[in-house]
């Protein structure tokens, strides 16, 4: 095992794949200088300016040019700097990247990775903190990835780069600089659609992903101290998602709590709850519930941000309720 941050893990994965495949390259704002987070540090020296291309602040064209370059056989990583900026490139993502393979009858498979660090981080305010991953799960034509630890960041990044179909890669900003560990040596790809079991228990199932995962694990420890044992699944990829693992767990516990940092209303938690009830039937599911943020813009003000944030305490309370009801 090696000591890394998630930024390191992502960097090692991209570096490994760029060494392996000369068709892989990166474009985005400030990437040649290492990227805002240092996620491309050293790339200019190793790969040259042609494979780590800094761009003006022109998100539509960054996204569209990435697609154009993919259509002619290269495999770009399109860096959006932070997720919220992708809204400036929505046509290129939704109407172009997500549609091309289908619309052209399979003539081209756009092998792009769109990298979008998302979520709350250091009081970044309403336009730099959003988690709207559910929008993209709703969008046919893309794979949606949201890792929460260094090993998954690296392994899923390798899979994303090797994927022939477009992958939206949501790096968890709030965890990016946290200390973590991952296996040494060559990074193995992690398949899409396989959840990771973080804790075993029979009292309730908690399904979660991305930046909220460490808080869920804190809550699980507190719950265990009170005699409630949770079965915890980190989905890791939201499309495809590991429905089989979730169903198997809820079959056992009969109680489901989905926890996500994103707004609860219309969040992906709703889809999971609906599918579980659909598939198992109300007779076999005693509780199926979500915990997310209120439907409010994310405040800059630290006290206000703390109010809307999903905290360990809120997770413990929701889980206790779900387990005891």
């Amino acid at each position: 095992m090696i000591d890394v941050t998630l930024v390191d893990a992502g960097r090692l994965a991209v570096q490994q794949e760029m060494r392996r495949d000369p068709r892989v390259w990166v474009l985005g704002e400030d990437v040649a200088r290492g990227g805002l987070w240092g996620q491309y540090r050293g790339f200019l020296e190793e790969f040259g300016a042609e494979r780590i291309v800094s761009t003006p602040i022109s998100e539509s064209t960054i996204m569209g040019a990435g697609l154009g370059a993919a259509l002619v056989g290269t495999r770009p990583i399109i860096e959006m700097r932070i997720f919220d900026f992708v809204m400036c490139a929505m046509d290129e993502l939704v109407n172009q990247i997500a549609k091309i393979r289908y619309m052209f009858g399979g003539q081209a498979r756009p092998a792009v990775v769109v990298r979008m660090p998302h979520g709350m981080w250091r009081n970044s305010a309403a336009q730099h903190s959003q988690m709207l991953e559910s929008w993209f799960v709703h969008l046919p034509g893309v794979i949606v990835v949201a890792p929460s630890c260094a090993a998954d960041e690296a392994g899923l990044m390798v899979s994303a780069i090797r994927s022939d179909d477009p992958v939206l890669f949501f790096d968890p900003k709030d965890l990016w600089l946290a200390a973590d560990r991952m296996p040494a040596g060559e990074i193995q790809p992690i398949p899409f659609g396989k959840a990771r079991r973080l804790h075993e228990g029979g009292d309730l199932t908690i399904v979660t992903w991305s930046a909220i995962v460490p808080k869920v694990m804190e809550a699980v420890t507190l719950l265990a101290a009170q005699g409630v044992h949770a079965d915890v699944l980190d989905l890791r990829t939201l499309w495809p998602w590991d429905e089989a693992a979730v169903l198997a767990s809820v079959k056992k516990t009969k109680r489901l709590l989905v926890v996500h940092e994103a707004v609860e209303v219309g969040g992906f938690g709703g889809e999971i709850v609906a599918r579980v009830i659909d598939q198992l039937g109300t007779a076999h599911v005693k509780v199926a519930r979500r915990l997310g943020a209120p439907r409010l813009p994310i405040p800059f003000s630290p006290p206000l941000e703390n109010q809307i944030r999903v905290t360990t305490e809120k997770i413990v309370a929701a889980a206790m309720k779900a387990a005891r009801e």
Partner: peptide
Amino acid sequence: IVGAGTPLGVGAALAAQV
């Protein structure tokens, strides 16, 4: 989509240059 072919073309041209 009106205007959408322009970024695509720039991407193809950039890939050619690379």
